[in-house]
């Protein structure tokens, strides 16, 4: 059971890692925002799942937490995307990425 919990947590942490790498590697704002929110939403879900398996007595709070994150995370990403679109961000390689290449 404990192995399963750590397995879930590992998956979650890996997706956090992927999202961090993606934030650095993606070429422009929209894809960067995409990887920054989607992967972390999944990562949080798996970390919380692992915690539920590890400590079943905390499951009520943890489920509430997950619901809250599922509600707010996509919302914030959509607001950021909309603000960027209104501000005139284009689908092209920007300065941040040029520094890394």
């Amino acid at each position: 059971m404990e192995i399963l919990a750590y397995f879930f947590i590992l998956i979650g942490v890996l997706s956090f890692l992927i999202s961090a790498i993606g934030l650095l590697r993606m070429p422009e704002l929209y894809t960067r925002m995409h990887i920054g929110t989607k992967a972390t939403t999944m990562g949080t879900f798996f970390v919380v799942l692992g915690a539920i398996v590890l400590q079943p007595s905390w499951s009520a709070e943890l489920i509430l937490l997950t619901i809250f994150i599922f509600m707010t995370n996509p919302l914030s990403s959509s607001v950021i995307a909309r603000a960027a679109h209104t501000d005139g961000a284009r689908l092209e390689v920007d300065d941040l990425d040029k520094d890394i290449r």
Binding site: F68, M71, T72, L75, S78, V79, R82, T86
Partner: peptide, 18 residues
Amino acid sequence: KVQSNFMLQSASKLLFPI
């Protein structure tokens, strides 16, 4: 200047009291 979208408006109504 820009009005926020429908998603944000309805979500804020739900989330604000919480």
